[in-house]
């Protein structure tokens, strides 16, 4: 069976911006889901697996490394699409490096995470960039920003790297299913960034309101 193409679906999607840090995604989640209904059932199942991974990936904060490694193995054991596995593997590599930087900043031991770099990280934990600077040139700057408490800027560096990396991974056939997976992965970065940006913007707005109005800031809030 040849590779499946989606001329109609991919042509119906708006182009993604060159940079991820835009005000809002070029297409809403609802509209995107509508367009994805053009997929054949087996490809739709692969997209569902990606969606499940993204959902899982966004809920990792409260889990231990062992929990993450266990549920990650369970998650990828259900995935047969090699391109999707590659996307997920790259995402988890980045996540493991982030965890290592944060743990080292907190004075903790090397993580027991997942991915192809975990042994290198454990071996070169004392090296500022885990000897991975040629593959991940952002580690040094990220480490610095985490140290300075600039979480949003640190996140921007990661997203920027991931967004560009995905562009490089894009297949030459712009109408292939793999091209669609790349589109979804890049769209997810934009969506995640705009969510973060909105949360940060809201927090900044509330701070400004409190500073400006002082005790009158909560005047119009509903009575408890």
């Amino acid at each position: 069976m040849g590779r499946r193409t989606y001329y109609d679906l991919i042509a119906s999607l708006p182009g993604l911006p060159l940079r991820f840090d835009v005000e809002r995604p070029p297409i809403s989640q609802h509209r995107l889901n509508e367009r994805l209904q053009m997929l054949e059932p087996d490809d739709a199942a692969v997209v569902d697996q990606w969606t499940n991974f993204v959902h899982w990936d966004r809920q990792l904060l409260d889990r231990t490394d062992d929990d993450v490694a266990h549920s990650y193995q369970q998650l990828i054991s259900e995935i047969s699409n090699s391109f999707l596995l590659e996307l997920i593997r790259r995402r988890m590599d980045t996540r493991t490096i982030i965890a290592a930087v944060r743990r080292r900043r907190a004075g903790m031991s090397a993580p027991t995470g997942v991915g192809q770099w975990i042994e290198r990280i454990q071996r070169d934990y004392s090296h500022p960039q885990f000897q991975l600077q040629t593959v991940y040139p952002w580690i040094g700057r990220f480490d610095q920003l985490v140290g300075e408490g600039q979480a949003l800027e640190a996140q921007r560096i990661i997203f920027d790297f991931n967004y560009r990396e995905l562009e490089e991974l894009a297949p030459t056939d712009m109408f292939s299913f793999e091209a669609l997976l790349i589109y979804l992965a890049r769209w997810e970065i934009i969506d995640r960034w705009t969510s973060l940006d909105q949360a940060a913007g809201k927090a900044r707005f509330e701070t400004l309101i409190t500073e400006t109005l002082g005790e009158h800031a909560h005047l119009f809030e509903p009575a408890e």
């Binding site: 193409t5 001329y7 109609d8 991919i10 042509a11 119906s12 999607l13 708006p14 367009r35 109408f175």
Partner: peptide, 13 residues
């Protein structure tokens, strides 16, 4: 057919 499918998809957007 290929080009037509792309044209139809573009019309959605």
């Amino acid at each position: 057919a290929r080009a037509g499918q792309a044209a139809c998809g573009a019309m959605l957007d």
